[in-house]
Write a protein that binds this DNA or RNA. Structure first.
Lengths: 340, 340
DNA sequence: TTGTAAGCGTTATCAT
DNA sequence: ATGATAACGCTTACAA
C-alpha cells in the first residue's frame, strides 16, 4: 500500500514510536534524528493515515454539516454559508462532511452520531424540534444550529438579528408613508418567522397603525408560493401599498406577481425581502432587503462548534449577529436619470 | 466511551468475531445467535466505529469534493451540483467531504490524496491542468472531473454538451434575423470556453456570416466583468443586435449594462446566457439560456467515480450530457398581453 | 457454527 | 533520547 511510519522506522533503524514522536514534533527526540526522520518522510512521500489516526486519537477533525433538501432552493444562502464554513474549518485543519437529513427520522441521526465519523455537527434546518435537541444532548455530541434561534435553552446557535432587521425594514417603509403593508408568513412557526413577524407587528404598533389580518397571508415551503401570496394580497378590496416578503426568494415570486398585474414597483406597490441574497439585486428594480452576514454565520458556527468539541460541558453558546438594511429601488421612488 | 463489539460479545459470552459476522450478515452463523446479537446491539445502542472500520477495510466510503472559491459566485451551479452529488452518494452509503483547493499547489493536493481520508475525488475546477492529471494518475487515485471536458486523454469527466448547446443558441439568434452577435469570452481558454466559442463561430459560419473580431470581448473571472464587456460591445460604432454571454451570471451583468444604456431587451439588443441557472429567470425580461442538467451531472459524476473506486484500472470514462435550449423573453419579441 | 489471533497505522505509556 | 508494547475497534483467515 502506501508509505507508513514503519517504512521510515525500518529504513532508519529506529522504532516506530521514535519516528512518530519526531513526526509530531515532540521535544524528547534529538534534533539529529528528527531531521533524519523528517527528511526520509519527505523522501518516501509519507503522509499519515487519517483512519489510523482517527482510531487512535478518537477524533476525526471533521465536522458534519446536516441540511435538508429545501436549502437547495435558496442556493445563494446555501453556497455562502457552506463556503464560509468550509474555509473556517480548513484554517484549523478540519473539513466539512455533508449530510442530507430532514430531521424526520431520529434513528438515522442517531446512527450518524454514533458512527463518530465526525467530531460534531452543524445543523442547517428550518426548524430544530426540541426532541431532537434533547436527543443530541443525551448523546452528548457537540452541535450548533446555524442561522436560526432555537427554543431549547440548552441548544447552541448562531443566528442573524431577524427582529431588529425586520424592525428597520418596517421603519423604512413607514417613513416612506406606507400604512397598508402586507406580510407573507410561513406555515410552521419557527423562530425566524416569529422574529420577523413580531418585527412586522411591532413596527406597525410603534407607528400607531392597527394590524389588519387580511394583510397577513401564508406561504408554503415550495417554489412560487410567494407568487400566490402576493396575488392574494393584490386581490384585496383595499390592497397593500407595500409588501414585506418573508425572504428574498419569496420577494422575487411576489415581484413577478406584481408585474403580471401590470403594477409598477415601487410606485404602485413597494416590495421588500429579507436575507440580502445576491439574487435580490438581479430583478428590475432590485429589491430592498436586510442582508445577513452569511459567510460569517458559517464561520462563526464552525468556531463555536470547535469550542464545544474541545469542551462540550461549556454552557450553551448563542450568538445573534447584526444585519444590515439594504435600500434599493423596490422601495425608493425612481431617480430622474441613470448614471454609470 | 461508546458501545463496541466487545461489549456485545461480553454480554452474550460470544467471541467478537462471531458478533462481527452476525452484525455483517454473514451466513455462517446460527440464526439464533444472529437474532441475539442483533437484539443486544439494538438494546445497547451499538453502532460501528467508522474509524476502526475505515482502518481495517482500507476504505472510507467518503468522496472528496474539491472546488475553488470562485464557484461560490455561481451559487446556483454550486448548490445544484453539490446536492445532486450528495444525494447520489448517500443512496449507496457514501458521503461527500468538501475541500477548497485552487489547484495551484500540487503539494497540498498530494497530502490530501495520501491521507486517504476519502476513496476518491470529484474536481470542480474551471480548468484542470495536465500536470495535475498526471499527478493524479501517478498516485493512482480514483477521480472524476465534474462539469468540464479535460484535454488529457486519461482523465475521466462528466460534462454538458457545450458545443451543441451553443450551436442551438446561435441558430435561434440567427433565425430571429440577428447577424451582428457579440460574444463574451474568457481569459483562460479552457475546454468549456473553447466549445462555446467554437459554437459561436461555427454558428456564424454555417449562416454565412463573417466573424468580426470587434464583436468578441474578453471578460475576467470577477463580478461585474460581464457588465464592462457588454458596455464595450455597446460602445462599438456598429454595435451588436444580440449578445451571447459566456454564462448566465455574465448575462445578468450584461443585462444591467444594457438597461443602463436605456436600451430595450430584446428590441434593441437580444441577450442569451448559458447554463440555465435559476437566476436567469429572475431578470426582467427573463434570459434565454441553455440549461444543463446540473443535478444529473453531480449524480453521474459520483456514479462514475464509484465505478473507478471499485476498479481504477478501467479505461477513462468520459460522458457528455445533453443540454436544453430555454427560449425566454430576452430574445423573443414581447407578446401583446400577459396571462396568468 | 463458533473461536483464536493477527493486523489495519497510529499514538501514548512506561521502561530503558 | 530511544524503544517495547499496548491499545484504538473492527474484520477476516484460519483453526477448532
Amino acid at each position: 500500500m502506501s508509505v507508513t511510519i514503519e517504512d521510515i522506522s525500518k529504513k532508519l533503524k529506529l522504532s516506530t514510536s521514535t519516528v512518530s514522536k519526531a513526526l509530531n514534533g515532540y521535544k524528547d527526540v534529538s534534533e539529529k534524528t528528527r531531521d533524519l526522520v523528517m527528511g526520509t518522510a519527505k523522501e518516501l512521500g509519507y503522509h499519515p493515515s487519517a483512519a489510523a489516526r482517527n482510531l487512535r486519537r478518537q477524533r476525526t477533525d471533521k465536522i458534519g454539516f446536516v441540511f435538508n433538501n429545501s436549502l437547495m432552493y435558496i442556493s445563494d444562502y446555501f453556497a455562502e454559508v457552506i463556503v464560509g464554513a468550509t474555509a473556517a474549518a480548513e484554517t484549523v485543519g478540519n473539513n466539512i462532511v455533508l449530510y442530507i437529513n430532514e430531521g424526520d427520522s431520529p434513528d438515522s441521526l442517531i446512527q450518524l452520531i454514533r458512527a463518530r465519523e465526525v467530531d460534531g455537527f452543524v445543523f442547517v434546518w428550518n426548524h430544530v424540534p426540541a426532541h431532537i435537541v434533547d436527543m443530541l444532548l443525551d448523546e452528548n455530541v457537540p452541535f450548533v444550529v446555524l442561522g436560526r434561534r432555537v427554543g431549547h435553552p440548552q441548544a447552541s446557535w448562531i443566528a442573524p438579528d431577524n427582529y431588529n432587521g425586520g424592525l428597520e425594514l418596517m421603519q423604512h417603509l413607514i417613513n416612506l408613508g406606507h400604512t397598508r403593508i402586507g406580510f407573507t408568513t410561513r406555515p410552521s412557526m419557527g423562530r425566524t418567522n416569529e422574529d420577523r413577524f413580531n418585527a412586522y407587528k411591532d413596527g406597525l404598533i410603534q407607528a400607531g397603525i392597527s394590524i389588519d389580518r387580511d394583510l397577513i397571508v401564508e406561504t408554503k415551503l415550495e417554489p412560487f408560493s410567494g407568487y400566490h401570496a402576493a396575488k392574494q394580497l393584490l386581490d384585496l378590496n383595499d390592497p397593500p401599498t407595500a409588501i414585506f416578503a418573508f425572504h428574498d426568494y419569496v420577494a422575487i415570486d411576489a415581484h413577478q406577481a406584481i408585474v403580471e398585474r401590470g403594477l409598477k414597483i415601487p410606485d404602485d406597490v413597494a416590495l421588500v425581502g429579507f436575507d440580502g441574497l445576491n439574487v435580490s439585486a438581479f430583478t428590475t428594480p432590485p429589491i430592498t432587503t436586510v442582508s445577513q452576514p452569511l459567510a460569517e454565520i458559517g464561520r462563526e458556527s464552525i468556531l463555536t462548534l470547535l469550542k464545544r468539541i474541545a469542551n462540550n460541558d461549556l454552557p450553551p453558546i448563542q450568538k445573534t449577529l447584526p444585519v444590515e438594511l439594504k435600500i434599493r429601488r423596490s422601495t425608493q421612488p425612481e431617480k430622474s436619470s441613470n448614471s454609470t
